[in-house]
Amino acid sequence: MSRPQGPHKPFLSFGNPFRTSLTKGSYLSPKLLASLNYFEESLAQRLKKLKLADKEDVLSLSWMRMATESLCEIHSDIKSLILALELPVCDWEDKWIDVYFADSVKLLDICIAFSSEISRLKQGNLYIQCVLHHLNNASSNQCVRTCSSLDGWSKHIGSKNPKLENCFSVIDSLHQTLDLPKIKNSSKGLVLMRAMYGVKVISLFVCSIFATAFSGSSNKLMDLQVPDSCLWGVDFNKVRTSVNTEIRSIYSNGKVTVLKELEVVDMGAKKVHLFVQDGTESVECDVLKNAALDLENAAKDFSQELDLLGQDIDGFFQIVLTGRDTLLHNLRIDGNISGLVPASNNAKDQVVR
C-alpha cells in the first residue's frame, strides 16, 4: 500500500476563520452565547478522547474507531444545535445553505471511499484463510499452494484502490472551503457558522488521518492551525501536534503497512512464507505450527476490528445524512432551495461489503 513519498506540503493557513465570528456591532443574547460556549466546550471534550495514551495507538484500527465515534458525537451535537437555534428561513442565505450541503456530500463521498477500502482489506483476509487451509491440508503441493496464497496476499495489500485515490481530491476541496461565507445581520447565523467551522476542522483532521493510514502516504496529512481563542483550540492543537508527529515518525521508518493490526498480519504472513520456503512443509513441525497459529490469531483480530470500524463509519454516514434532513426540515422552506447540492447516488444506500 506504499506510495512514493513526495515533498510534504503543509496545510498551515486557511484564511481567517473568524470572518464568521462576532463583528463590530454584533450582539449575542445570553442564551445564544451560552449555546455557543456549550457547543465549543463539548468539542474540547470530544477532542480529549483522541489524545494518545500510547504512541503506538495512533494508526491502529481501535484508535480509528474511537476517532469515528468522536466524529459521530460531534455531528450529532451540530444537529442538536441546529434544532435548538430554531432557524427560520429568513436567517439563511442561499450561499450558506449551498456550503453546508456541498460539505455534507463530500463527507458522504469520503465515507464511501473509506468503506470501500475496508471492504478491500477484508477481501485480503481470504488469502490468509487459504494459507491456513493449505497448511492444514497435507498434500504433495502444499508448499506451492501456500506460497501462491501468500504471494496473493502480498500483492493485494500492495495494490491501489481507485476510490481511495479519488478521496484525496475530495478532502482537498473540503479544505479549500474552510473559510466560510461572511454573515450579516444574523446572530443565530453567526453561532451556527462558528460551530460549523469547528465541526469542519475536526472532520478534515480525522479524514486526513484515515486517508493517510489507508493509502500508505503521509503527503496529505494536514497541519491545520486553530486559534487558541476557540474554546476547543488548545485541545485541538495539542492532539494535532501529537498525532501528526507520531504518524510522520512511523512513515520515516519506511514501513509499508502502517495500520497496526495489518502490520501484525503481514509480519505473520512473511514469517510463515520464510519457513515454507526453507522447506518446513509440515504443519506438524512445531515452529511452523506456532507461526500458523500466530497468523490465524492476528488475522482474526484484524478482521474483527475491520468489521467494527466499518460499522462505525456506516453510523457516521447515517448521522451526516440525517443531519442534512434535519436542516432541511428546520428551515421550513416551501419549494426547492436554489443551488441545493444533492447527495451522491450512493448516499441512500449503504456500501455493500
Rank of each mutant, 00 (worst) to 15 (best):
D54I: 04
R65T: 15
A44N: 10
K79R: 13
K51S: 14
K55E: 13
D57M: 03
Y38H: 12
L36Y: 05
E41Y: 10
K48V: 13
S70W: 00
N37C: 08
E73Q: 13
S42D: 08
S35M: 13
L50R: 01
K51F: 09
V58Y: 00
S60H: 02
L61G: 08
E41R: 12
N37M: 10
A44H: 03
W63R: 05
S35E: 12
L59K: 01
Q45S: 15
T68A: 13
L50P: 00
K79H: 04
R65F: 07
L71G: 06
D57Y: 01
K55D: 14
L43W: 03
L36M: 05
K48I: 11
E73M: 05
A44C: 09
L36Q: 00
T68G: 07
A67V: 02
E69K: 11
K49L: 13
S62G: 04
M66W: 01
I74R: 02
Y38M: 09
W63P: 00
A53C: 05
E41C: 08
E40G: 06
L59E: 02
L50C: 11
D77T: 04
E56P: 00
L50A: 04
A44D: 11
L36F: 02
L33N: 10
S60G: 15
H75D: 12
A34T: 08
L33D: 08
W63G: 00
D77Y: 01
S62R: 11
C72L: 08
S76R: 10
K79F: 03
L61Y: 05
I78Q: 04
A44F: 06
A67G: 11
A67K: 01
K79I: 10
D57Q: 04
E69T: 14
F39L: 04
L47A: 08
N37D: 13
K49P: 07
R46G: 08
E73Y: 09
S70I: 01
S35K: 08
